[in-house]
Design a protein around this nucleic acid. Structure first.
Lengths: 178, 178, 178, 178
DNA sequence: TATGAATGAGTTTTCATTCAT
DNA sequence: GATGAATGAAAACTCATTCAT
């Protein structure tokens, strides 16, 4: 499973071969077909398991404030040690694939929906406490935050020199301005 | 070329076959290898040409204000007729592929850099005129705007019911608040 | 064994898998290799045992006249309840396979030879009693009867609407005409 | 195509591999998939073409009497040079496969139906001329004749020493007896 | 110049059999 | 004795690219 997740990140979902997965895992390649119904099932399980390990829902549940959330995004995007670069690539690969595979779309959608709900609650709490701009619905701000996270992740993959920290600071300033 | 661009959007970069491209274009399939050095060259040319046609740099150059820019993003993301859904999918496919193909990365990077420069200028002008939050560098806000655009595009592809317009309204309110 | 026989009839000899047999029998699939030397041995035993149960030699031994024999053929061919359709399909599968597998050929040949001998005797008795056309050797008529049975069975499998009863009536009329 | 037909006869429908076909034909094995949509299509085309060549409908159309027909059956069944042994095996393989493949069933059914119609006409003419037993409907006798042909073919494949000629002589005597 | 048949490397999948537990 | 995970050989199929015509 780990081998599969790594290879999705390195080569892209569509270029992963069962042979390569088996080889990296040091296993004979018949094993893959023996344990999974097919390549797609293997990749889906590998990706979702990698997410569950790397981005445990508890991390998000523990967010006390929008500031913490921004810090988490900044760490994920900007700090090469915070989030395994494997995972961010994997996330995009999975999102891309999910467009075409309904099974993956369902499972990934559920997972991302859980995160989103926690973000909405965090934003709402911030607004109630006066720490966060209250001139827009919490749902809209949560969507915005999610989009910023994904968008920065994507752009940093393409241009590692991008000043993602600066962009997040700007967002923090925008949200905090009373 | 148009056939190739459509197929990248529909099937994903890696699943496009030269046969399918030729078939959709109504051309004999030896033609593809005859006119292009290989599949990759064909796809790169097709993608970049599609961008140049669908997102002409003049659209961005004509932006008078950050409000206009937000309107453009909202239209691209939210209005199915504004930006051919082919193009947004194509953009993600190309960004994904660019991670692995240096030739594509260079050409796509140049193109996106041009857009980015125009956005920075638009933001700076807005700050100078007092219409845009001045508490953060123009570069940081431009990065933020670009990330929001990409992030929303990506999320809408996965969940067409997402309220992207609300998120953009929230961003507009954040930026405009004096 | 019953599971194996059913699957030969349903899927064809060559498409039966040991896994499928074990699964239908509700047994762990290591069992198959444990109890039989290999797949071929299992299928041969299963087929021959199914024949022994479905077409016991006693049925043929009890035939009193050629008329009875024709009735038996008519029932096998025409009556879906007389002969389990599993068995007729199984018979053809086994005959096909026997062409290639000498071990099966020997055992199946012995079995069919036993039936044939009884048919010859029945015909001979009919000729002696004047009930059956005596202008041809009993062996030749027995061969003819066997061929008619197999041929009709085969054609009915392909075309269930075939009027097999009519053909047998015609044969009865031919044989009986004094 | 000839290679495929031969291999069906030699190995059985299910055991033919595209590799083996290509090898016998002296062609690289990618060729098979290039020219046919899949293995099944290749085998079906090969089998039907072999029948059309070996058992041209003209042979049956030219039958002047039931005696001629019996002669044809005797030749097919008994004379190794009359009907390529490839074709008789091929016929059984195709009939067996037709039970499972609707496309093949349709095409084979049409072909065999054409033969059957000609046999019915021949029998009817024989009855009208007084040369053939008239105590049974022509359709029933035609079915009987077809079944005898198929049944003998099948039994001769299993036991090459079977006296098929004797059985046909017996049938001739039965039919001719005024 | 243009075509499309041919090629063969590479992919996924199936499955009988082996064998450690 | 019994199990089922593991193995690897073999299968069908895909497809970019080559090249004779």
């Amino acid at each position: 499973m780990r081998a599969a997740a790594e290879l999705i990140a390195e080569l892209g979902w569509g270029r992963v071969t069962t042979r390569a997965v088996a080889e990296r895992a040091g296993l004979p390649h018949g094993t893959v077909s023996y344990h999974f119904r097919g390549k797609q099932e293997l990749l889906i399980e590998a990706a979702l398991q990698a997410f569950a390990q790397a981005m445990p829902i508890e991390h998000f549940a523990a967010l006390g404030s929008v500031d913490d959330l921004l810090g988490l995004i900044a760490a994920e995007v900007g700090d090469p040690d915070a989030l395994d670069p494997v995972v961010s690539r994997l996330l995009f690969e999975a999102m891309r694939e999910a467009e075409r595979d309904p099974a993956l779309r369902g499972r990934l959608g559920t997972m991302l929906g859980d995160y989103r709900r926690l973000i909405v609650e965090t934003v709402r709490a911030g607004q109630a406490g006066g720490a966060v701009f209250a001139g827009a619905p919490a749902e809209a701000l949560a969507t915005l935050l999610g989009a910023v996270g994904d968008g920065l992740l994507l752009q940093v993959l393409l241009d590692p020199d991008l000043d993602s920290a600066g962009a997040i600071e700007a967002l923090r300033a925008l949200l905090a301005r009373s």
